[in-house]
Design a protein around this nucleic acid. Structure first.
Length: 289
DNA sequence: GGTAGCCGCCGGGCGC
DNA sequence: TGCGCCCGGCGGCTA
């Protein structure tokens, strides 16, 4: 599951190999075309396959940025526009000279979008579960949820924003895990890093936001930011379907204290799993209060 | 108008 | 071996 650190890794790799390049052709898989024809919004959101191809073909890639878990590619054809991509559960980009060079069969089998660059290389988007998203926008404002995202966790004002949101009527009575996983509260903190941060802070995932002191909330925010940075440096976490653009895994999962654990890595107690906002949440009933 | 809750997008993994 | 169920990030729709 790609979260902020994994997306950051992908962006850092795509940037040097794509900026300044021109897209000479665009391919959309038959699978996606069939889904679109059946009226589904598979990967391509609010745009038909032919229009997507037409829009991107010939465009030059001007910039590649990350915002929360989204990848923003600034492109220019007649005029500038944005290609906004979310990796969903299993999305992955590969930078290869041929689709056959994609290292693993399970990714090779699910390549849905291929951008052929003017240096002959390919930027291929593979997505096993097809929960990923591609949107062509004139500006960010064309997709309002992007404007509602919390500041980047490392940006000035992100802590103040978090405290204000967490104490608002909308969130104060909600389980803290649900609060920190909400993209309008903190950007880019998904299930994995929320689980790890709460474990490090010894906070029970179901504890209501209002029942955590301001001081502890500040420390929790700092723990989340620290874990995200630590994971960026470790090349992200590889839980099943994350790969970087060379098909490599990250190593952050080796440092997990709680996510995916049967027993607590601190005290050895058997971990428990509860559902919070319809997502499995694992915690240590002894350490986390 | 704000929000809670459900649906849809899917293949893989797992239990039986 | 094979079937069927469940999982999940997130937008969008309904009530």
């Amino acid at each position: 599951m790609p979260e902020l650190p994994e997306v950051e890794g992908v962006v850092r790799q795509i940037r040097p190999v794509s900026i300044g390049k021109r897209i000479v052709s665009v391919d959309v898989s038959d699978t996606i075309r069939k889904s679109k024809k059946a009226g589904k919004e598979a990967i391509l959101k609010r745009i038909e396959a032919d229009d997507f191809q037409e829009r991107l073909a010939g465009a030059q890639i001007l910039g590649v940025e990350r915002r929360s878990k989204y990848i923003y590619m600034t492109m220019k054809n007649e005029q500038e526009f944005l290609l906004v991509n979310h990796l969903g559960m299993s999305g992955a980009w590969f930078f290869v000279d041929s689709l056959l060079s994609i290292p693993e069969d399970k990714f090779r089998r699910h390549v849905h979008i291929v951008l052929t660059l003017d240096d002959g290389n390919l930027l291929a988007f593979s997505d096993i579960r097809r929960f990923g998203e591609m949107r062509v926008l004139e500006t960010e404002a064309d997709f309002p949820p992007l404007l509602l995202m919390a500041p980047e966790p490392f940006a000035d004002g992100a802590l103040e924003w978090f405290l204000q949101q967490a104490e608002s009527p909308r969130f104060r009575n909600k389980p803290i895990k649900e609060v920190i996983m909400d993209g309008t509260v903190i950007s880019g903190c998904g299930n994995i890093y929320a689980t790890e941060a709460l474990f490090r802070m010894k906070i029970h995932p179901k504890r209501a936001a209002s029942r955590i002191s301001c001081k502890r909330k500040i420390e929790l925010f700092q723990a989340i930011a620290a874990i995200l940075l630590e994971s960026i440096e470790a090349g992200g976490s590889t839980i099943s379907d994350y790969r970087n653009i060379n098909g490599e895994s990250g190593s952050m999962q080796d440092r997990f204290g709680m996510y995916g654990k049967k027993t607590c890595t601190v005290c050895g107690t058997e971990t428990k799993t509860v559902k919070i906002a319809s997502r499995a949440s694992v915690y240590c009933p002894s350490c986390q209060k």
